[in-house]
Design a protein around this nucleic acid. Sequence first.
DNA 1: TTTATTTGCGTAAACGTTTAAGTAAAACGG
DNA 2: CCGTTTTACTTAAACGTTTACGCAAATAAA
Lengths: 353, 353
Amino acid sequence: MREKRLSITDIARQLGTSTTTVSFVINGKAREKNISQVLIDRVEHLVSELNYQPNALAKSFRTGKTMTIGFIVDEISQPFFSGIAKYIDEKASAHGYNILFSSTKNSKKRGGEVLQVFNERHVDAFIIALPNGLENEVRKVISSEIPVVLFDRYIPGFESDYVLIDNENSAADAARHLIDNGYSEIAFVTIETDQSQMLDRTRGYEKAIHTAGLKPIVKKINYQGKSESIAEIAEFLKQHSQIDAVVFSCNYLTMDGLDAMRQLNLKIGEDIAMVSFDDLEVLKYFVPSITAIAQPLEEIANQIMEILMYRLTNNTNKNKIKTVLATQLEIRDSSQFKKSSDEVQPEALTVGK
Amino acid sequence: MREKRLSITDIARQLGTSTTTVSFVINGKAREKNISQVLIDRVEHLVSELNYQPNALAKSFRTGKTMTIGFIVDEISQPFFSGIAKYIDEKASAHGYNILFSSTKNSKKRGGEVLQVFNERHVDAFIIALPNGLENEVRKVISSEIPVVLFDRYIPGFESDYVLIDNENSAADAARHLIDNGYSEIAFVTIETDQSQMLDRTRGYEKAIHTAGLKPIVKKINYQGKSESIAEIAEFLKQHSQIDAVVFSCNYLTMDGLDAMRQLNLKIGEDIAMVSFDDLEVLKYFVPSITAIAQPLEEIANQIMEILMYRLTNNTNKNKIKTVLATQLEIRDSSQFKKSSDEVQPEALTVGK
DNA sequence: TTTATTTGCGTAAACGTTTAAGTAAAACGG
DNA sequence: CCGTTTTACTTAAACGTTTACGCAAATAAA
């Protein structure tokens, strides 16, 4: 038996005025609409006395604006996405927007459903980590003039606003870092995919390797599941025993790689060096700590919200805004072995010697 | 220039029928409302042909149901919360509900604002990790007959549905595990708070310690920030050099503890054992791996959604449902030292010996 | 003083649905 | 064949806002 909420009509009736007036006062349009100060005061007083809360549903229905942003990612529990979500929430809240989220599991089907549901709910804008194969559906949304900002990945040639990181140069940096530290048999472990960010990372790695006159060793995992992936990485490392360093192309491959190396009893920083694309808490606390390419989460979220706010205020979708951000290579102990062992924590390196 | 969407009226007009009929068909009430099969078919045909999508906003406005659940936590980026969010999203989506989330930063002010905003938006239900001091506001929501399920913590004597874990016994288990493995100077590091889950954990620890005839060593951190916390833990451990094991009462204290121990050059599993309340990926991959109390994320989410669905279908708020779930003590290498070193991985224990 | 403008409000329509209530025709019961 | 029930639909109100438009009174301009 939910009691009926106070409506703007109730306020108007109690004041013997019209809903128009009350609405103007509540929305701060009183001055421009020539409402007298006396009446403004009376309205405001009663509103706060009765603790009147406007019905956002009715408002949205009438105006078409929901003050809601749809946030669609592969999986909200992935630290990268929940980290972005954190900052997006902060910034959106500051602008009066709320976040409606859902995970797609990187499934086109789920993605399409979420897109449709959020559309029916009239979200004012979308923030999307584009799942495979959903381009056409997203294109439809974009052409219906609803602001869409993609992040983490995009489709080459796909016209939309996006915020990415410089995947190619980041991967190249990582490879160069290993090269500079004396490694020469540097592998790159990635997934079998046509997602742009993964291809860019692979290209960056290959360029750096070629530039150094080395031979690239690329392993593409056809990702079926965690245990299969671990086994495949382990097998790969066993088969290529010359490898002295590995770059893993994303956070979950890094984790699988850690498992694989543990299985093979390979000691990181000693038997083999590694760099992770994506920084994870575990990497910092690992002994020896593991070098990683850190994405600037807050900056990504900032840029996304900048674009969205621009789109939402200036009602235009023209001239797509394409932002590419730099990453930070967090150099840690385990990738500095071959060059000189002085800088490495003794207790990490003397293990088993 | 967003083009006007198709409305139920357009459908009705094109078919030369009434909106009522169309509405009934769309909502699957055609049979019970005695719509002829012929007409049903015509409506359904046109609806799919024109790809008509009902305006969820108008629907919500009319019915008062938004098919939205407000999810309010301290910080969505914390793995515990984003893990719960993941499962909640899955299960809610399956029931046609979407999740509107926001983080409170455990601030009463932010929490109150979020609560109010979500209320104005007429979310159908709330899932809340109750921030300090927000009891009265939440109580108001509950008494307005909107389903609310609390999780992670609650207020003793606060009448509401909740899903908790058995904090007291979990902490006691952890302490007993250490005792059984031969540790005797076991500290408990927690925060200065009156949050129920922390008090319960402390009580569990103390009971187990007392039962074993040992002396409790409790350190309460007045949490001001990460670096202060690390310093305080380090100072504490330095002052009490007799300590041979520590239980950290929550995930972020565990992380701070790792930092503090690193600062002091204390080798986990060797100089000192530890157990973390809350499992984190870093703990599993740490060498030696670190024992932790793992909360059953999916089961917690399951129970929350069970309660919510019950409340949302049976329109009653009476007889609060209070669920307490067991945890799993994930026993790993670093807490099995004192008892016998046979079971511990050699490379972990021989370090520095 | 007359006319034009500004001030200060109110009236009422509209947004897209759902649904109570009504109606006419068909089917049924006796 | 007449009254009753059932079938198959329609009419119209309602949900709580926003806002275009209208209008009278006050003020300014001429």
